[in-house]
């Protein structure tokens, strides 16, 4: 009887082993799991920065300002850009000999000016405003090099806000002898009235300030390194002298 039981056990074991082996295969149909009831992801979709602004204008446009220099029997316009909520950067010759400085934004809002100061060694000026400016960019950590794409935003000829693009074609000494050191040369088209325009890199950071142009159409730019150095020096800027009627 014991001899007869062994094969039974062996057969049972074999059958069980075969059954388990069959069940262990991936193709063996398994019982359905609990039904899925939530087909829509519960997590909210990731909101990616789209660069949208409150009024649809680009940050490049929103940082630019138009500066009107009302002198003593004279009137001139220039461009500028914000570097913080109440500080503008422009050229010294834009704010020089002024009886009144008037600043307007891209959308035509007028910003009151509280003070202006100019640098002695560069064609740069700092203008303080009473109201906050719409937007201000950050300064690039380094000057652009030859071949870098740049964007110039300003008010050429005192006209409408204009964005032009160009490329850095090199550097040279200051043709107007208003800067110590070298300035950048680009092929971006600028016009009178573009003085003080911001020069931006591909990431929207300030890499320079337009201050002159040549007859060949080249524009001269104060590099951001000079601007940063002057901003870091509190004694570099002195209050602007008003004109006398």
């Amino acid at each position: 009887m014991r001899r007869a039981g062994r094969p039974g056990v062996a057969a049972a074991t074999a059958v069980v082993v075969l059954a388990l082996a069959a069940c262990a295969t991936e193709d063996f149909p398994a019982l359905p799991g609990p039904p899925v009831t939530e087909f829509v992801p519960s997590e909210a979709p990731v909101v990616r920065p789209s660069g949208l602004t409150p009024d649809g204008f680009d940050a490049v446009q929103r940082m630019a300002v138009r500066i009107r220099n009302v002198g003593c029997g004279s009137l001139s316009t220039g461009s500028g850009f914000a570097i913080d909520a109440t500080t503008l950067i422009t050229n010294k010759h834009v704010v020089a000999d002024s009886a009144d400085l008037q600043v307007s934004t891209y959308d035509g809002r007028d910003i009151d000016v509280t003070a202006s100061s100019t640098a002695a060694i560069a064609d740069l000026a700092v203008v303080r405003t009473a109201e906050e400016l719409p937007f201000y960019p950050e300064l690039a950590p380094a000057d652009p090099v030859r071949g870098d794409e740049v964007t110039v935003v300003g008010y050429p000829q005192g006209g409408a806000l204009t964005v032009t693009r160009g490329q850095v074609i090199g550097s040279t000494t200051d043709p107007l002898n208003e800067n110590l050191g070298e300035v950048l040369v680009t092929d971006a088209q600028v016009e009178p009235g573009s003085s003080g325009s911001a020069v931006l890199d591909s990431q929207g950071r300030v890499v320079g300030v337009v201050y002159a142009k040549s007859a060949a159409g080249q524009s001269f730019i104060v590099p951001v390194s000079t601007l940063a150095a002057l901003l870091a020096d509190t004694a570099a800027f002195t209050p602007t002298a008003s004109c006398t009627p």
Partner: peptide
């Protein structure tokens, strides 16, 4: 269109401001 119009109006306003300043002078 609105942006272009805003820029245009801002420019017109600036030009008018300039003219007003000139006229005032």
């Amino acid at each position: 269109t609105a942006q272009a119009r805003i820029v245009e109006l801002a420019n017109e306003k600036a030009q008018l401001g300039d003219e007003w300043e000139i006229t005032q002078q």
